Amino acid sequence: MAPSSTEIAANAVGARARIQQFIYQTPLIPAQKVGKSDGATVLFKAENFQLTGSFKIRGAMSKMSTSAANKSLITASSGNHGVGAALAAKTFGRSLTVVLPETVVPAKLEKIKSYGVEVILHGQETGLAERHAQELAASGAYEYISPYNDIDIISGQATIGIEILEQCGHVDNIFISVGGGGLISGVASVIKDAKPATKIYGVSAVNSRALAESIAAGKVVETKHLPTIAEAVAGGIDYDTITLPLAMSVVDHLIDCREEEIISAMKEMAFDEHMIVEGSAALALAGFRRVAPSLAGQTSIILLCGANVGVPGMKEIIFPT
């Protein structure tokens, strides 16, 4: 049975106590330009400055701090969860195998390998990597850790919500990129528990919107996945994922963004806000851009979920040949 949003909010308090010595409390940074022309106040929750360059370290540390130490672990990732899980495994002295899609961003692959974990490349998208990891775990040789379908993972990501509440007295809207749903269901559970009036916007890439389509259908549905610059939110979701009922209970609005909108947001972050972020983080800004004219006079937070983008890839985006 899926936990309620109230349970996640309560569990986040314990998760924070377990992981706070291993992570950064990231800043809430006022935008320099974003929102100004629309009369909106915008703040960036800068998980792009997190220890591993992504929020994923929160959930990984939360899980590793509660996982039994008598079994080898296996997980799957598009990259950022793999980085966080690899560092968490090293921190707690655990044996870990990370299954990644063959399309993993090279910069993320190198980060994962640097922590000394075993790496398996399988499939062209994260959903296939997840299924392979689950099959290997079914043999009994490993304990499988889902990158999103796990209460301890979600509770770790939810600690971002606790920090936001401490850093900002009033929040009208929060924009969060949507992948498997661990981030949005965790953060939104904490925010809604404390401030029910705050609106939660989930932003998906048009090319890979498994959770968004499942929310619309009220059940997990098969989704076609195309390549996206926001590769960290690409891939399918488990049929029994607890993130679906959680997200359905706490997300107010869903927005889909095209690839050109995400790329434009990456450029805007670099040139106007002087921050390099990956596509999945820029996705949240692209979602804000869609509705910004209607948010005049309101305070909106854009959650920048990560910055693990390679130099060649970023150069190609900002200065295309």
Rank of each mutant, 00 (worst) to 15 (best):
S264G: 09
V13F: 04
E213A: 10
P196M: 10
P196I: 07
G59W: 02
L121K: 03
M248S: 15
M61Q: 07
V34T: 13
M314H: 06
H170I: 14
I151L: 10
A2Q: 05
G297V: 12
P106R: 09
A107D: 04
V119R: 13
K63Y: 03
Y201C: 15
L183A: 05
R131H: 15
G93T: 11
A188E: 00
F271A: 10
T159D: 06
V119W: 11
G279L: 12
E273F: 15
K63W: 00
S280T: 05
Y142A: 08
I164D: 00
A230F: 13
E166R: 15
I318Y: 04
L73E: 00
K45A: 13
K56E: 05
T228V: 04
T198L: 15
S155G: 09
N149F: 02
A286K: 04
I184G: 03
Q298P: 07
G287S: 12
K111I: 15
R131D: 15
A69W: 05
T198Y: 14
D193H: 06
M266C: 15
G313R: 13
A247G: 05
G202S: 12
R131F: 06
G123S: 06
V311F: 06
F55T: 09
D193T: 14
K195D: 10
A286Q: 13
V203E: 15
E143G: 00
P147M: 06
A12K: 03
G84M: 08
E130N: 14
L244N: 00
S62H: 02
L100C: 02
I184W: 04
A88I: 11
L285K: 01
I154H: 00
V34Y: 03
K33H: 12
S95M: 12
A76Q: 01
I174S: 02
I120C: 02
L283P: 05
S114D: 10
I302F: 03
A158N: 01
F288G: 08
L283F: 13
I200L: 14
G35A: 13
G169I: 06
S280P: 07
A307D: 05
G84P: 11
L285A: 05
L51F: 15
I23N: 01
